[in-house]
């Protein structure tokens, strides 16, 4: 076992814990905090299944973004769809190959180009459009640069300096089964993995929370049925139960019947 293998082993253990616990806690918060009012952006579906369809279109096709800005949409779709393909291909480092994964391999490989193109477009927009530049903090640029670097280092391995992917798989498999195996020492691989670990660690404390967050957005996930179904948050019900007008008030005489 090399020192580097141990270091990376620990790093990925830590990064995974941070990612899972961090996102888990955030999602728990979004789950717990109520939406006290019906604030869905209309026209909106009037049934639950309609909402599922609306959310599906939003998450897969970015429908609202499409209405807003066509070229942001093109770059965003390129980046995100390619990202999914790349990640799908990456599952080969963590699980046994099946025919679907074998079929996916070439798509994942070339998707890397689409991903880089999308990211470059998004970065260009962020630098060139005065409005987008104004709203960007350094972290917004760094996020794109981080993803670009991950992509470029990965592509360099894929299309140039290959690494021993059988050994990479053994290393990650070992991490999961507590049976530690050495990691190849190629600089590009180490860089790729270091940046990936950084991405995992910042995920729960950054805007990357948009990925789980979009599903909780009340303007998109509520059913348009306020007249048919009464919608009351627990803290608002408390006001009613105690016959209070203000939370820090002394109870008044019953206001309803």
């Amino acid at each position: 076992m090399t020192f580097i293998s141990i270091l990376y082993g620990l790093l990925f253990w830590a990064a995974t814990l941070i990612l899972v616990i961090g996102v888990g806690r955030r999602v728990h918060l979004y789950w717990k905090v109520p939406a006290p009012l019906k604030i869905v952006t209309t026209p909106a579906p009037v049934t639950r299944s309609g909402v599922v369809w609306r959310m599906f279109k939003e998450v897969v096709f970015f429908t609202s973004l499409f209405r807003a800005s066509k070229y942001t949409w093109v770059f965003a779709i390129l980046f995100h769809m390619a990202l999914w393909l790349v990640l799908l291909r990456h599952t080969r480092y963590f699980m046994d190959m099946n025919s679907f994964l074998v079929f996916m391999q070439p798509f994942g490989r070339y998707a890397g180009f689409a991903m880089l193109l999308g990211l470059t477009g998004l970065l260009g927009r962020r630098m060139l459009v005065d409005r987008v530049r104004y709203i960007s903090a350094p972290s917004d640029f760094l996020m794109l640069l981080l993803l670009l670097s991950i992509g470029v280092s990965g592509m360099m391995m894929s299309f140039g300096v290959h690494t021993d992917i059988v050994q990479v798989k053994a290393f990650f498999h070992g991490l999961m089964t507590f049976d530690w195996q050495p990691l190849p020492g190629d600089p590009l691989l180490l860089l790729h993995l270091l940046l990936v670990a950084v991405l995992m660690i910042i995920f729960p404390i950054s805007k990357l929370l948009h990925a789980p967050g979009v599903f909780f957005s009340p303007t998109r996930n509520q059913v348009d049925n306020p007249r048919e179904k009464r919608h009351v948050a627990p803290w608002a019900r408390e006001l009613e139960r105690e016959h209070k007008l203000y939370a820090d008030d002394t109870p008044t005489a019953p206001v309803s019947r």
Partner: peptide, 11 residues
Amino acid sequence: LYLDICVKCGA
């Protein structure tokens, strides 16, 4: 949620 998840896409 909205304070957290804005990606500054500019749309």
